[in-house]
Design a protein around this nucleic acid. Structure first.
Lengths: 240, 240
DNA sequence: GCACGACCTGCGGGATCCCGCAATCGAAGC
DNA sequence: GCTTCGATTGCGGGATCCCGCAGGTCGTGC
């Protein structure tokens, strides 16, 4: 069995390699990549049976790299190992995972033992293993009343990128009035109307406040935004 | 000599401890803190000669902890060790460092040797040692035409928190028209007017676009925003 | 004293945003 | 077939935002 490790931090990379050797004694080779691009290349050029992937990496993130790998090898087993359980990450992962793929999501704060158990479960037993805390986020995101729907999530990313209502409407193929309806729902779910008011009218600009709250709650993060920025740029060029 | 290490990641913490022992053979004790709060407590209760501080830590960040420590020991030598050279961090540090303090700013991507040299320079020779890359950011921030003035930076943080013009005016003690003037300058410096236009008017909402650009350029980051959120909350309560 | 630049401020208007009301459409369920 | 529910859309208005223009203030340097 050959395992690929993708992790930019050298200390974490060494720790991962050690844990892999310990949890999977039958493992023949452990390949190491320092970034997403290298991970894709190594996964393409070698016979790999599983990947341990850090999500936050400069240049090409772990999610982007996993997406690339799954394009050609939709049955690849990938264990995501991340510092955070941001909803942006959890959504990002579950959006790209193919139906036939086995995957896992373990937090870096977990013990070495828990990480080792997850490796055994995924790479030996083909189980999907998701940390409890991450599962909680996943659950909340699915709940229709608590979490955001896909359409609400779309307008959220769009206003976070700084688009106008009209631009969002053109991009998503709906009317500006619909955009505003979605925004209103978004504001309600984020609880913007119940934010403090001053004597002199509202303290908060709904649009900007929504972005601030989404960031602080992990609905969005910098990576999801730069990813959205890239998509937006492509759409703009296509339009011209 | 006693050195305090504040770093939440155990691998990095162990690496720091090793580097301290190597670079400073005369060092008697190396104390370790896992977070900002513990760092402040350890610095208060022990005879500490210098601190190596990670900036990004959950709960109490390294900048907040350093600020606390410098309140009672303004001559403390502190070496900041961070993953990023975000302008938000650089500004945050240089805003709180007392005139008589010796400090340093080294990136985590630097080699162990460079880190060791910085430790020797700061703790043995009382030199200020700032990585070249960080220095570049500091320089740009000082340049009046390239970087943002303090007033522009203030309105930037305010709109990022989601405040309305009126609320910003009340908070900063100026008229709403002044807020809008500052915003216009901010938009110009961020280059929002030269963003792409569609046939059907502007694609971007200036206010939201400014926040998006500031985040992607590191002028703001999540920590500076949650810090601003805390300040805002205090101000709101005072007003009521 | 005087010119200069940086900042603050009031006025006014045009564009955008926020939202209540109501009609329409499509999909799911009985 | 009918109902129900969610999503979309138009209309209209009030609030906010963006910005050009012009006048005022304050500190610096000659």
């Amino acid at each position: 069995m050959n395992i690929l490790i993708a992790e930019d931090d050298p200390f974490h990379r060494a720790f991962l390699a050690g844990t892999v050797r310990e949890a999977l004694p039958g493992c023949e080779a452990v390949l190491e990549a320092e970034g997403g691009e290298q991970a894709v290349k190594l996964a393409r050029d070698n016979r790999i049976d599983g990947v341990v992937m850090d999500i936050q990496m400069p240049e090409v993130s772990g999610i982007a790299a996993a997406s690339k790998i799954w394009e050609t090898r939709p049955d690849m087993r990938i264990l995501f190992w991340s510092n955070y359980s941001d909803e942006a990450y959890v959504r990002g992962v579950s959006r790209i995972v193919p139906k036939e793929a086995v995957y896992g999501y373990v937090l870096k704060t977990a013990s070495a033992q828990r990480l080792g158990l997850a490796m055994m479960g995924i790479f030996l037993e083909d189980q999907c293993i998701i940390d409890r805390e991450v599962r909680g986020v996943q659950q909340r995101a699915m709940d229709l009343h608590e979490g955001l729907s896909n359409t609400e999530f779309e307008v959220l990313t769009d206003i976070a990128l700084g688009l106008t209502d009209k631009a969002i409407a053109a991009r998503r193929g709906i009317s500006t009035r619909s955009v505003q309806s979605r925004l209103k729902q978004l504001y309600e779910k984020l609880g913007i109307d119940q934010q403090p008011h001053d004597d002199e009218g509202p303290v908060f600009n709904s649009r900007a406040r929504a972005v601030a709250l989404a960031l602080s709650r992990g609905l969005l993060n910098l990576e999801s935004m730069s990813l959205g920025e890239a998509k937006l740029r492509r759409w703009l060029e296509k339009g011209q």
